[in-house]
Write a protein that binds this DNA or RNA. Structure first.
Lengths: 194, 194
DNA sequence: CATGAAGGTGAATGCGAGTTCATATTAGAC
DNA sequence: GTCTAATATGAACTCGCATTCACCTTCATG
């Protein structure tokens, strides 16, 4: 049985996570540990008492954001079960996810990276699996409802999300364009094919 | 009058540009100077005889790619003047530009960066201006022809390009979706607006 | 083919960032 | 209030990388 954390340690632990969230969302994964420590009002060494490495700290922060997103997808799926407006749910969920990608620079960069650099955070694999499953289900539902082009899969949706612009105006237009595109029917005579 | 370059220097200069192109396209702007030197079969010092800094070298490489793209846009515009299939020209040009963004990691990263880090390469500003002008013209032509949503501007197009996936399959789908979206008409009841 | 200036070399330097650890500080039990 | 295990501190160490420079090589001119 692990002993309860000392009160100052608990306070710092929270301050560190909060500071890391803020700094890394603004400046991206490249933000320095010193900067995070300063924002948390703590010395660098303290970061390392709570996290074995920078990767671990950033990983924890990104995992938090991921969890919120996955919960969001699950909620959308649950609503589809009962209510049933697949199109609206799909687009709203996408817009929310886009918000995260656009707002949290670290999240975006982390998702853009080649996988495998995943730090061993408890439950990471499981969370990722839940996320992919939820997205797959959502995509499948949209396909069945005819709200989503048949040639677009979950991986394509992720790619589209990863690309959301940071600037709010650009983001709105981007989403409008992309959502329209996702609704459209594939055509044969595109200049895009090889 | 500047003296002609010594033959070995000319050879190395070319090898360096070529190596830089390759390495930086593959590994991005983060690639090290040593790696570029190795690929060119030359010592690091030699890179610095030909370029004052890494930024300068990378800038030169990116400028090359930019020039090719701008020429491409100009050619498309010229063809529109005579022939006249605005829609096809617009989409083909976009697909070509997308190819560059997807294929050349350095180009993509460089364009994504905040501007201002622009090294003083001769003709840089002029080239950028030409590029923006050409893109503006192309967008305007597409607007007039009704091939492009009215709410999409040149900046939006750039943002969309900057986001093109690297993977060939994803890229094809992405382009298909986006091009369909760009053709579509804006609608009022989107979940995206505030 | 001798000669000197242009060109090339790569070890050394400086810097920024992650990580460590000997030392100082403090929470909380008694 | 004392005591000590837990925590915090931040200077120092390490590592990767851009950049420099004192010293060699080589081109090309006469």
């Amino acid at each position: 049985m692990m002993r309860a954390m000392r009160s100052d340690a608990a306070r710092n632990s929270e301050a560190i996570l909060q500071a890391a969230r803020d700094v890394v969302a603004e400046e991206g994964i490249g933000a320095s540990m010193v900067r995070i420590a300063e924002r948390a009002g703590v010395a660098v060494g303290t970061l390392y008492r709570h996290h074995p490495s920078k990767d671990h700290l950033v990983g924890a922060v990104v995992q938090d954001a991921t969890r919120r997103l996955v919960d969001l997808l699950d909620a959308a799926l649950a609503r589809i079960e009962t209510d049933g407006d697949v199109g609206r749910e799909f687009e709203t969920a996408l817009a929310s996810a886009a918000e995260t990608y656009a707002t949290d620079r670290a999240f975006k960069e982390y998702r853009a990276q080649a996988r495998g650099a995943a730090v061993d955070l408890p439950g990471a694999d499981q969370l990722e699996a839940r996320g992919y499953a939820a997205l797959d289900d959502l995509v499948a539902a949209a396909h069945r409802a005819g709200t989503l082009r048949a040639d677009v899969g979950a991986a394509d949706v992720l790619e589209i999300l990863a690309a959301v612009p940071t600037s709010p105006e650009r983001r709105a237009t981007y989403l409008a364009v992309v959502l329209a595109g996702l609704r459209s029917a594939p055509r044969r005579d595109s200049p895009v094919g090889r």
